[in-house]
Amino acid sequence: MPKRVVPEAGRRRRRPTKQGQVLTHQLIVETALRMLREHGAAGLTARRLGLALGADASTVYRYFRGMDDLILAIADELIAHAMAGWRSTGDWRSDLRELGLRIHHAYLAHPQAAVLTASRVTGLPNEVAADETILGVLRGAGFPDADAVRIYHAFIDQSLAFSILDAATLALPAAAREADEEVWRDTYARLPAATHPNIAATAPLLVARMNNSVYPTALDMLLSSAAAQLTR
């Protein structure tokens, strides 16, 4: 049976932690995000989180049912980062492009957390609000509901898939990431035209592009397809 979560007002500490802070749901999530950034997923445990907060590890379970509940809260916090300050322009395509880039940027700002959370469905307030916003943009543009849902599905999955892919690269140790990047210059760019004519012909372009995220290009392609459908 899952642990009972005490309402915020009932679980607030009456005295500060060793760091002089009063524990809150938000403070725990922010501290967990910092720990993920500094130590990766393996470094995020209730014991270490308690130490970072200056509190006993059991205190975390007064706010969250377990560590997976905390992971879902972190996922929802990243979506909150993505949506903060966003305002509709009234142009559906510009609005969706901005939302997609914001989601991608928010996850890449926390690559370790992105790898851990981007595949999760939380049902928490920020995620629900973001989904409502995206569907509202599509329905407001004139897409029938079935098409709005189909494009929403492709849009959000594309955003999250590229977030995981690009975040996983950023989360690699620096030496491994640099070695991967050098492969395009040291291997692909040196393949002879006699055996690999297509790679040899495009090698300079491959070297220039392949270490950068292609998400903006993929996003534009998806939006162009949606725009063509709306025109038809």
Rank of each mutant, 00 (worst) to 15 (best):
M210Y: 06
R209M: 10
R120K: 15
N198W: 13
D69C: 12
S119Y: 02
T45H: 09
A189S: 13
A218L: 11
L78G: 14
A228Y: 02
E30L: 14
R232P: 03
A176F: 03
L27I: 14
N212I: 05
T122F: 06
R48A: 13
A189I: 10
V183T: 14
L27P: 07
A154I: 00
N211Y: 00
R120S: 05
E38K: 04
A226P: 01
L23H: 09
A82C: 13
R190P: 05
R12E: 04
I164W: 09
E38W: 00
G85R: 12
R209W: 09
A75R: 15
G54M: 11
Q19W: 05
R120V: 03
E8Q: 06
G43E: 03
A75T: 07
R11M: 09
E8F: 04
L108W: 08
L170H: 06
A208R: 15
A203I: 10
R93Q: 15
G20F: 05
D68K: 08
T202Y: 11
K3P: 01
T195Y: 09
L78R: 08
A129E: 15
I74A: 05
G142N: 06
V5K: 13
H153P: 00
A146G: 07
Y63M: 00
Q19C: 02
L23N: 04
E127H: 10
T59Q: 14
A55S: 13
H105P: 01
R185M: 07
A41C: 02
M83Q: 13
L124E: 05
R177K: 12
W86D: 03
T133F: 03
L33D: 02
L172V: 03
Q112N: 14
L116Y: 00
A189F: 05
G40H: 06
G140S: 11
V128E: 04
T31K: 09
A193N: 09
M221D: 10
A174M: 01
M83H: 05
A55Y: 02
A42Q: 11
L116D: 04
D180E: 08
N212A: 15
G54Y: 10
E182P: 01
R15W: 08
R34S: 10
Q26Y: 04
A80T: 08
Y152Q: 02
V115T: 13
M67H: 07
D186L: 12
A171G: 08
V22N: 14
W86R: 09
I79W: 07
Q26D: 15
P16M: 00
D76Y: 07
E132P: 00
T122H: 07
E132Q: 06
A200I: 11
F155V: 01
A171W: 07
T117W: 06
A218V: 15
L172I: 04
A146F: 01
P192R: 12
A194R: 12
V128S: 05
A114D: 08
A193P: 01
T217M: 09
A114N: 07
